[in-house]
Write a protein that binds this DNA or RNA. Structure first.
Lengths: 193, 193
DNA sequence: GGTTTAACTTTACACTATGTAAAGTTGACA
DNA sequence: TGTCAACTTTACATAGTGTAAAGTTAAACC
């Protein structure tokens, strides 16, 4: 029955999520996921024929559960361009830690797997659109600096807000999440205005 | 004889470099490297017992050949803090494309291999020191902005100049190398001053 | 009540790449 | 002539992904 199948699928996705979130150095294998979901390894392949498909599905599942689109869209409500920029940085920057574990696994496959690359690009495109909207709002206020075109400004903001940069500042530089958000907001303002 | 051994080692390092530079989606295996160097796969293991050791050795070899330290140090000659910042961004930013292929391979192993992680951290520490020197020079001129401490400013510059950001702007955003250097110089100035 | 069917288990194996092990080859040098 | 280091060749262990196929189970349907 499709209800039961759907339940099992969900259980696998939750198990994958849980293991990837805990993450650490431990690599997450198909057999680990099966064990966590209380299934045989082969049963997992019944639902997700390839590891990369499971990772992609987990990413999408996470985006659904966490309602990322809604949260990013909410930042568009701010009145001024600057407020909108701050709100977007806070929204996306606050979302990163919630998806980091799963995102990391997908990013790691990006270099060797075309499907993973496309899926990640697709998700990041949504973020770029948010950046673009923020830049346009700044421009509408006349607050956008003269150094860069709108597209270049979008690229820069998009780059600044990458998951890799979050990882670097939080993990390699030892920044707190609060400092990350605050300093990213300031940096974005300084670069763009 | 050690001279002959050294020649073979060099040949392996050159082969690794060449294949990683060409790179593309093609994964570079130990057997590919052996073939390129005109050796049996086992002979490569005679000189580099682990793949990660070979990658690390290739990175160091490259740094030697390209004299990265000298090039980064040269940026310290500039008179004003701002000129020094520009020179450092240009020096490091110009170096990235020359090491990108090899660096990418090492970065990819970082997540699963402790040795690779340490080796990459070590190389990046040298870059951080360059960032720190540039920030200090800005501060000495009284040109450093008030938003960030010297350490935070160093972290931000270091993050901005990451290989991943170069990759993102050049490959995902389609920027030219010239645009990358120019806009990074401007962005760094804007964030730090 | 018996049959069908989908979901799942169990067992087995192919494949790829790293890495280990060990016996055999070759050419320079003493 | 014999030794030694560098290298080749062959074989095998290991880990993880993915395929294949036969067997189990329980709900649904007639």
């Amino acid at each position: 029955m499709s209800r039961k199948e759907s339940d099992t699928k969900k259980r696998i996705l939750e198990a994958t999520w849980k293991l990837l979130e805990k993450g650490d150095a431990e690599r997450v294998r198909m057999s680990d996921i099966a064990k966590e979901a209380g299934l045989s390894r082969q049963a997992v392949y019944l639902h997700f024929p390839k590891r990369v498909e499971l990772l992609i599905a987990t990413t999408r599942y996470l985006d659904d559960v966490k309602a990322v689109d809604r949260r990013l869209a909410a930042s568009r409500a701010a009145s001024s361009g600057l407020e909108r920029l701050d709100a977007f940085v806070a929204a996306w920057g606050g979302y990163i830690p919630e998806i980091y574990g799963v995102a990391k696994a997908l990013i790691a496959m990006k270099d060797t797997d075309t499907e993973a690359d496309l899926a990640w690009r697709d998700r990041m495109q949504a973020v770029r659109e948010g950046c673009e909207a923020a830049v346009r709002a700044l421009n509408a206020d006349g607050a956008l600096g003269q150094d860069f075109s709108q597209e270049e400004a979008t690229d820069l903001l998009w780059t600044l807000l990458s998951v890799r940069n979050w990882e670097h500042l939080r993990h390699d530089c030892g920044w707190s999440q609060a400092r990350y958000i605050d300093h990213m907001q300031r940096s974005a303002r300084r670069v763009l205005t």
